[in-house]
């Protein structure tokens, strides 16, 4: 059991964050909370990507001394992916917050129950 946990703990954590994020987006009525949910979802996805390339007790993939071996290094590609994903996430969050400000100016509220000009 402990063995299983220590092996998969990062995946469990990552998907936990993803589900928490989606849950917040679906359930909360406050727009800022929904945006926080998007942020948590992003973080979960980033953690998932990192754990795909992670080796326990691995080192950074830099050949700082000649006797280092590639087998002990973590995979650098997911880290590059996460860096890109973080930047994209920041852009989405910034846009979402600026839209939230605009929305507040129009409606005077951030409650999504009250913002329903348009319906299906």
């Amino acid at each position: 059991m402990i063995d299983f946990l220590s092996h998969y703990i990062y995946y469990i954590g990552a998907f936990g964050l993803i589900f928490i994020g989606i849950f917040i987006i679906l359930v909360k009525h406050n727009l800022i909370k929904v945006i926080i949910g998007i942020s948590i979802l992003d973080t979960g996805v980033n953690l998932f990507l990192i754990s795909v390339g992670y080796i326990s007790d691995g080192t950074a993939p830099i050949f700082s001394s000649p006797d280092m071996k590639a087998e002990n290094m973590v995979d650098p590609v997911p880290q590059a992916l996460v860096l890109t994903a973080i930047v994209i996430g920041v852009a989405v969050l910034a846009l979402a917050l600026s839209l939230a400000i605009k929305l507040y100016k129009h409606y005077g509220t951030l409650n999504l129950r009250k913002i329903k000009e348009m319906k299906w």
Binding site: V34, L41, D42, G44, F48, I88, V92, L99, K102
Partner: peptide, 20 residues
């Protein structure tokens, strides 16, 4: 603004699923 917000929330979930 309202429809952009809707689009953004749904699009952000979609992009995250794609990345997973």
């Amino acid at each position: 603004v309202e429809s952009a917000m809707k689009y953004l929330i749904q699009g952000a979930i979609g992009s995250s699923l794609l990345l997973i």
